[in-house]
Measured scan of single mutants.
Amino acid sequence: MRDETLEPLPKNWEMAYTDTGMIYFIDHNTKTTTWLDPRLCKK
């Protein structure tokens, strides 16, 4: 489920979907991926 109230992704981040429809996030700065939304992981 998407939460439209979240702010935009940080610079150089992208949201993508797996072949089965699961959301993951791509950090183009470090060339890594994560299941965790970077907008929710702020310190």
Rank of each mutant, 00 (worst) to 15 (best):
E4F: 10
E14Y: 04
A16M: 05
N29V: 10
L36Y: 11
L36M: 14
P38R: 00
A16G: 09
L6Q: 15
T18L: 03
P38A: 00
T30A: 09
T18D: 14
C41E: 15
E14F: 00
E4K: 10
T5M: 15
T5H: 12
D19I: 03
E7M: 09
N12E: 07
T20H: 05
T20L: 08
M22R: 12
P10W: 01
Y24K: 02
T34I: 00
M15T: 13
W35M: 08
K31F: 08
T20C: 11
I26T: 04
K11P: 14
D3R: 09
I23V: 15
K11R: 12
W13Y: 05
T33P: 01
Y24A: 01
T33R: 05
M1T: 12
L9T: 03
M15C: 10
L40S: 12
K31C: 10
L9K: 01
T33Y: 04
R39L: 05
Y24S: 01
H28E: 03
W35G: 05
E7S: 12
K11T: 11
P38G: 00
K42Q: 12
C41I: 15
N12L: 06
T18K: 03
H28D: 03
Y24W: 02
T5A: 13
E7D: 10
L36V: 13
K42N: 08
T33C: 09
M22Q: 15
W13A: 02
R39P: 03
D19R: 10
M1N: 07
E14I: 04
T18C: 07
D27E: 06
R39K: 05
R2M: 14
T33F: 02
C41K: 14
E14L: 04
W35D: 05
L6W: 10
K43S: 14
K11E: 15
T5F: 04
G21P: 01
D3W: 05
E7V: 10
T32P: 00
T18Q: 02
T33G: 03
W35S: 07
L9P: 03
K31P: 01
A16R: 11
D37V: 00
Y24T: 02
T5V: 12
D27H: 04
K43D: 15
L36T: 11
W35F: 15
Y17I: 06
T5Y: 08
P38D: 00
E14A: 09
T34L: 00
D27C: 04
W35H: 04
R39W: 07
P8V: 08
D37Y: 01
I26C: 05
M1L: 11
A16K: 12
E7A: 11
E4G: 10
L6D: 11
N29G: 11
D37E: 03
K42F: 06
E14H: 04
P10T: 03
N12A: 08
K11D: 10
N29Q: 10
P38L: 00
E14N: 04
N12F: 07
K31S: 12
L6V: 13
M15S: 12
W13D: 01
T20R: 12
P10I: 00
T18G: 06
F25I: 03
D19A: 12
W13P: 01
L36D: 08
I23Q: 15
M1E: 14
D27A: 01
T34P: 00
D37A: 04
K42A: 14
D37K: 04
Y17H: 09
F25L: 01
T34R: 01
D27W: 00
